[in-house]
Design a protein around this nucleic acid. Structure first.
Length: 450
RNA sequence: GUGGGCGUAGUUCAGCUGGUUAGAGCGCCAGAUUGUGGAUCUGGAGGUCGUGGGUUCGAGCCCCACCUCCCACCCCA
C-alpha cells in the first residue's frame, strides 16, 4: 500500500499534551469566571443548516463559511452552468458554524419553551472560518462565549466587562477594553445625512488609527460619500478628552438625532457603572470601534492585549433582533467571546503560563519483572483508589530507560518494589527532584503522596 | 480575494561564483554503568535537497510551473 502524506488541512493544528495542559488552563480559568457569574453551559452541533448561517455576518462572512457538500447524488438535477452563488446553495445544505452567537440565537428560538428568561449561557466550542491563516488566525479555533438574552438592562453590559476584567486579571494579561455603541455610529451616519451608508462609514472610521485621517477621508470618498458629508464628520474626528467629555459633546451634536442620543445615554450609563465597579483593567470609549459582524445594534466591545501585537483577543456586543430572523422578535441579547487560541499565543509570547501544568502521573513504579509487577499492581490499585495519579512502567526494561522516562515526563516520584521491599511489604520512594529516597509502608506512602 | 517571503535528516539550520561520496547542533538508538534519571564520553541509524519540467559535461545552488507553510492587506477570535 502506498504511504499517505502526513499532514492536516491548512489552518488546523494538532495539540500535544503540553499544549493541551496549557489550553485547559485557559479554558478552566474562563469557565470558572463564567460559572461565578451564574452562566450555564450548552453545546450546539458543529454543523448548522446553511440557511441559519448565511447573511448574518455580512458579505465577507458569507464567503468565509465552510460549506459541506450534500451526501448522496448531490449533482442530480443541478444546472452547473449557473453562477457559483446559485449552484452552491443547491449542493450544500449545511455548513460549519462560523461563530457561537448565531447558533445560540437559533438555539434560543428552538428551545424557547425550555429556556427560562433572562437566560445566561456559556459555550466553549470550536468554530471554523475559511480565512487565509496567518499570525493569530486559524481556520479552526475555539471561542468561549457568554451571552445573556431576554433583558435589555445595561447591568448585563457591565457584568460582561467585569468578567473580561476578571479573566484577564487571573491569566495575568494586561488588556484594554474598548467600548462603543452602534447607535452612536448610526447617529453619526444620520447626522451627516447618509443613514444608509452606516456600514461604509463605520468600516472607514474603524481604520482611523491605522491609516490616518486623510486616508479615511479618501476611503469615504471611494465609498461614495460626497465632500459635504465627509466634512460633516470633522467634529466627530475632533472629539477629545475622556469618555465623559466626548459623550457630552456628542450629546449636543445629536440634538436632532434620536438614535444618537439614545446611544450616548446608554454609554453614559454604562461608563457610570464601570466607574463604580473599580476595575483593574483599562476601559476606554473608542468611537472608531466598529466591528464587522452586522447583527450588533447597541454596545460593542473589543479587548486588546497591551503587551503583544495581535488582533483582538475578545469581542462582543448587543444584538436586539438576532432571534427575530428565526421567528422570535423583540428578544434582546448581549454577549462576549474570548478567543482561546489568541489568548494562548499571547500567554506564550509573554511566557506567562504557570509552571507544572502538565503532570502525567504523581508516582511511577519501576518494573523489575513478573513477580514484582504483580505486587505493584496491588499497591497501584490502592494509590489510585486514593486519587493519586499512578503509573506502572509497562515493561521490565533497563532501569536507566525507566528512570529516564520518569525524568522526561516530569513525574515527581518513582517507587521501587523489588525483592527486599516485597519481603517486608514496603515501598522505596525516590524524590526525583532532590534525589532523596526512603523506604516506607504502603499506608505512609499514600499519606505522603496524597 | 490581493501582495511578499520560505521550503535541505525527527527538529533547528549551514552548504562559497554551479564541481567527486550533502554537513553541524539538538533529538533518537546502543554502549561506558546488570537496583537508580538529569552531566560527560564513545559508537550508530537516519536525506529521491517540497514536486514536476528546463538550462548545463555536471544542479541543493540558475530558469519556469505547481504545491506547501509563514507574513502582510482585507476581515476578524
Amino acid at each position: 500500500m502506498a504511504t499517505v502524506k502526513c499532514s492536516i488541512p491548512k489552518g488546523t493544528r494538532d495539540f500535544l499534551p503540553v499544549e493541551m495542559a496549557r489550553r485547559n488552563y485557559i479554558f478552566d480559568t474562563i469557565r470558572s469566571v463564567f460559572k461565578t457569574f451564574a452562566f450555564e453551559p450548552i453545546e450546539t452541533p458543529s454543523l448548522e443548516n446553511l440557511s441559519t448561517l448565511m447573511g448574518k455576518y455580512g458579505e465577507e462572512g458569507d464567503k468565509l463559511l465552510f460549506k459541506v457538500l450534500n451526501s448522496g447524488d448531490f449533482m442530480d438535477g443541478v444546472d452547473f452552468t449557473q453562477d457559483y452563488h446559485k449552484v452552491a446553495p443547491q449542493i450544500c445544505e449545511r455548513g460549519l458554524r462560523y461563530d457561537l452567537t448565531v447558533p445560540f440565537a437559533r438555539f434560543v428560538v428552538q428551545h424557547r419553551d425550555q429556556v427560562v428568561f433572562p437566560f445566561r449561557r456559556y459555550q466553549l466550542q470550536p468554530v471554523w472560518r475559511a480565512d487565509r491563516p496567518q499570525k493569530g488566525r486559524y481556520r479552526e479555533f475555539y471561542q468561549c462565549d457568554a451571552d445573556m438574552i431576554g433583558s435589555t438592562s445595561l447591568l448585563n453590559e457591565l457584568e460582561l466587562v467585569q468578567m473580561i476584567d476578571m479573566v484577564f486579571g487571573r491569566l495575568g494579561i494586561n488588556v484594554c477594553v474598548k467600548i462603543n455603541n452602534r447607535k452612536v455610529l448610526a447617529g453619526i451616519a444620520e447626522m451627516i445625512g447618509a443613514p444608509e451608508r452606516l456600514v461604509d462609514i463605520t468600516v472607514a472610521i474603524d481604520k482611523l488609527d491605522k491609516i490616518g485621517l486623510d486616508n479615511v477621508r479618501a476611503e469615504l470618498r471611494e465609498r461614495g460619500l460626497d465632500e459635504k458629508q465627509i466634512a460633516a464628520l470633522d467634529p466627530v474626528f475632533a472629539l477629545e478628552g475622556d469618555a465623559g467629555l466626548k459623550l457630552g459633546t456628542l450629546d449636543k451634536m445629536f440634538e436632532n438625532v434620536e438614535v444618537g442620543r439614545k446611544g450616548v445615554e446608554e454609554l453614559k450609563t454604562l461608563f457610570g457603572y464601570i466607574e463604580a465597579a473599580a476595575l483593574k483593567c483599562d476601559v476606554e470609549l473608542d468611537l472608531t470601534l466598529a466591528r464587522g459582524l452586522n447583527y450588533y445594534t447597541g454596545a460593542i466591545f473589543e479587548v486588546k492585549a497591551k503587551d503583544v501585537q495581535i488582533g483582538s483577543i475578545c469581542g462582543g456586543g448587543r444584538y436586539d433582533n438576532l432571534t427575530g430572523i428565526f421567528g422570535m422578535p423583540d428578544v434582546s441579547g448581549v454577549g462576549i467571546s474570548f478567543g482561546a487560541d489568541r489568548i494562548y499565543d499571547v500567554l506564550t509570547e509573554l511566557n506567562a503560563f504557570p509552571e507544572g501544568l502538565e503532570q502525567a502521573a504523581r508516582v511511577m513504579f519501576i518494573n523489575f519483572g513478573a513477580a514484582e509487577q504483580a505486587a505493584c499492581v496491588a499497591i497501584a490499585a490502592r494509590l489510585r483508589a486514593s486519587g493519586i495519579g499512578t503509573l506502572i512502567y509497562p515493561d521490565a526494561a533497563k532501569m536507566k530507560k525507566q528512570m529516564e522516562f520518569a525524568n522526561r515526563k516530569g513525574i515527581p516520584y518513582v517507587a521501587f518494589v523489588g525483592e527486599s521491599e516485597m519481603k517486608d511489604g514496603t515501598v522505596t520512594l525516590k524524590n526525583m527532584q532532590d534525589g532523596s529516597q526512603e523506604t516506607m509502608t504502603v499506608d505512609s506512602l499514600i499519606e505522603k503522596l496524597k
